[in-house]
Design a protein around this nucleic acid. Structure first.
Lengths: 101, 101
DNA sequence: TATTCATTTCCACTTCAATGGAATTAGTGG
DNA sequence: CCACTAATTCCATTGAAGTGGAAATGAATA
């Protein structure tokens, strides 16, 4: 994964509302959570929420599936996974891996 | 760790230049890397770089240690660690942990 | 103490994110 | 077809991020 993509994804998660949305989705599971339910849970105005979800979708962290008139938001576990993997590998956590002084 | 703090840290890492700075620091190891060296490595103007570093410091991802007239930037491995842990735990990666449809 | 070096602060500018009310589209049922 | 619901797009506004040249600071050295 290129640095730009990683940065974009981190940036999208780097916003309180969007991070809460994503957490809510993850808790909701693979079948997804309707936009309206997120709205009710977080108490964010519809248009604002829609913008945030659009951004999460734009970087691949969320996908949407329509069922009748409700739109389900589905968290992309694998994308978050690879994002965290990148951070673990590229930024070699835990000092043990880093050269000693 | 509260959501706001996590979001802030993610946001700071969510910028190409800052992410590159951090990666560079991590590779540099615990003793830290001088600002000037980062500047040379990434080819970013001094003032711009200084702004970015200030932000990384402001969220605790980097600390600075002065030695004579050179400022060493030291990546805070434990902070990144706890950040990634939060994402792993709170956002229960890998679908296995999420309720089935 | 004047000079050079490393880095920051100052300042100005431009762009973009965030926000949310109002209008609009899309889907369903009477 | 009309009313209703779910969600988005439109639009305007506000504030903040990003950028970098020029001046200032802090520290070593001659």
């Amino acid at each position: 994964m290129e640095v730009e993509v990683v940065a974009k994804r981190l940036a999208e998660l780097g916003h309180t509302t969007r991070l809460q949305v994503f957490r809510h989705l993850v808790k909701g599971g693979k079948q997804g959570v309707p936009v309206g339910e997120i709205q009710a849970a977080l108490g964010v105005p519809g248009s604002t929420l829609s913008h945030h979800i659009t951004r999460l979708v734009s970087v691949g962290l969320v996908q949407q599936r329509r069922e009748g008139r409700t739109l389900y938001c589905v968290p992309q576990y694998d994308v978050l996974d690879s994002l965290l993997d990148f951070m673990k590998e590229e930024c070699r956590v835990n000092g043990d891996y880093a050269p000693e002084p």
